[in-house]
Design a protein around this nucleic acid. Structure first.
Lengths: 203, 203, 203, 203
DNA sequence: GATGAATGAGTGTTCATTCAT
DNA sequence: TATGAATGAACACTCATTCAT
């Protein structure tokens, strides 16, 4: 892709994820990229088009990761459960929640989903519905193979995901995404996951 | 308080909670209150002052409610646990999370905490730290009196609060605060609480 | 009416009538009125609203003049024909075609009616249809009282009005409306009218 | 001529004649021709140069037609009057007023002559002065050979041309040049011409 | 208490044009 | 021949704020 266009996208993502779409002006972006405002309109139809391209790219990444997970889930047999778990850690935590690009988009969605219907939809889908649905399927599997006794896999998914979501909001979606914050998130999240499965096994 | 001033505060809160502080103009507020823009400046130094007064009012409410809870906690003895539970439901759920005023402020904080340091602090304190701390104390009590075996009350607090927080974000802080959304939240939250204490008792 | 608002309307009319609506910027108007651009938006919702107010004022003037003429026509009897003729000269020529305000609007319409549907309608109505209709009625009357033999009053109206329309375009709607141009128009128009009625009488 | 250049000229004429010169952007033209904006500047020095070339072409066409008419007039003798009449219908009506190219230019001139001195001159010359002058000469001839009694051939020219000019404005220079409009014009114009000469003969 | 009037700074966007390739 | 990339100047419009009344 064109170099300037990519710079604009990068700068826009940085700024949007920190202040939201509407609070960032074309001028702000241009200051970072060091081009004139009119030049932006060579690469993008309008401000919204920058956002659209960022969101579209995010959705293609997220779609890909999620389909990898679905794939892993559908091919999982008793003996491969460990692999599924590893895949979830890799695709959902590292490459999704903690990935710099995805994370910035999520913070942007967190800001704008209040006043923008389209972003509300994307937010709900990728932050709530999709993860919870997938995790529900995972727990259904664990129930069906007898690892877990409880039948309400939907509630299990909430119990599993809610603390992670809380840590996300606490450490990943606040201010600048520092390594420190990332570390806080990782520690708390993994501690929770371990505890969760320990208790699960206990039941 | 002056009637017009109160009208301005009400209109501002409505609009701020739906679109965020910076996305709402003085014009927008005045359209609702049916006054001229310059009149606002008789009652408030500037736009920020409206926000400040709203936040201050929220903090006084929240402080009061929380101190009621702390009070209830400190006077709780074995026999009064049910009263404490009722108090939490009343002061934390009904009068705090689901109270119209508090809820609007929280949604406003949810929007603006990304780009505003002061609101970030208020958000973290009243949405994360304060509730989690209080609930940690409650679980400590329950442990100390032998109702609960597990010792990690901090993690218990997260496990208890995180689903509620997720439901808040899902049903209370999205779009307009309809009775339907409130009902969704209430159902899901209370179902979780009941399940939580059932499991707790089981352990 | 507010003084500044009136100044804006005057300046806008001057500029619009010379260059057309879209070729005139808010800046241009402000330079003339000596106010800042943002001040315009205190008095008018947007640029279009200035135009709308000008057109509306024109239409109220024109409506009034035309209803005076219709009135005069309906009360005309054989002996009052001279009065009707005088009324037409006064209301149609002096106060309509050659009136400064109306004339400027007509020139503006002449420019913009090509690319603006609403203005096309106004142009057609006030420049073509209304005058031709009225004049057709006048000739019908003259036929009915036996002054004129020919029955095709519609064509008579065209023959009467077309040269006037041509002189309008030639002298009134070109460049600045100077007294010289006005005089050219008046001379040619009245010469035509006299000739026209002389021939009429002859037939 | 270069193919692309011709395409640009065609597209420009279409657009200019509908919206005027300044309301049409290089972008608009390029969208039609399907080239990039910068390419235009290979063929033309600037936007104005496109207009100049269009106008120049029109003037050469018009000059040619008019000199044909002058030629026809100068060689006309009593017996050839019918041929002159036919020539006028052909060269002035069909190939000039109703010719697609000329018509578009005339509409463009009609729009821009208000704010552009050069186009004002061209407009006056080719729409008013030249036709009226020629027709004056024709009527002088008709007077000199005794067909017409009246001596004021200038006024005769106006009486002849003004209705045609009015029909032009009414049917040819408004909106898109449809066949329907063309037909309206033709009917009304020829009806006028016939009537005109009938009356003439009668006198 | 309230408002009419004004304004400086800023916003997204369009446009004709240039120039190296 | 054509275009990718850039830009300065302009545009309509918004906004928070001020101040005299």
């Amino acid at each position: 892709m064109n170099e300037t266009k990519q710079k604009i996208l990068n700068a826009a993502l940085d700024l949007f994820s920190q202040n939201g779409f509407s609070a960032v002006s074309i001028r702000d972006i241009c200051k970072v990229v060091d081009i004139k405002e009119s030049s932006v309109y060579y690469h993008f139809k309008n401000k919204q088009a920058i956002l659209d391209e960022l969101l579209q790219h995010f959705e293609s990444i997220a779609t890909d990761l999620m389909s990898q997970l679905e794939q892993a889930l559908s091919t999982t047999q008793k003996t491969f459960e460990v692999n599924l778990f590893k895949k979830i850690c890799d695709c959902f935590f590292e490459k999704y929640l903690m990935d710099e690009y995805c994370n910035k988009i999520m913070r942007l969605l967190s800001i704008e989903h209040f006043s923008n219907d389209e972003m509300q939809k994307i937010y709900d889908y990728w932050i709530f519905d999709k993860p919870l649905n997938f995790q529900t399927k995972v727990f259904s599997l664990l129930v069906s193979v007898g690892i877990i006794k409880t039948a309400d896999s939907k509630y299990l998914a909430v119990k599993f995901y809610a603390p992670i979501y809380l840590f996300m909001q606490r450490w990943l979606f606040c201010g600048t995404l520092t390594d420190e914050h990332k570390q806080f998130f990782r520690e708390n999240a993994y501690k929770h996951i371990n505890n969760f499965f320990k208790e699960m096994a206990g039941i």
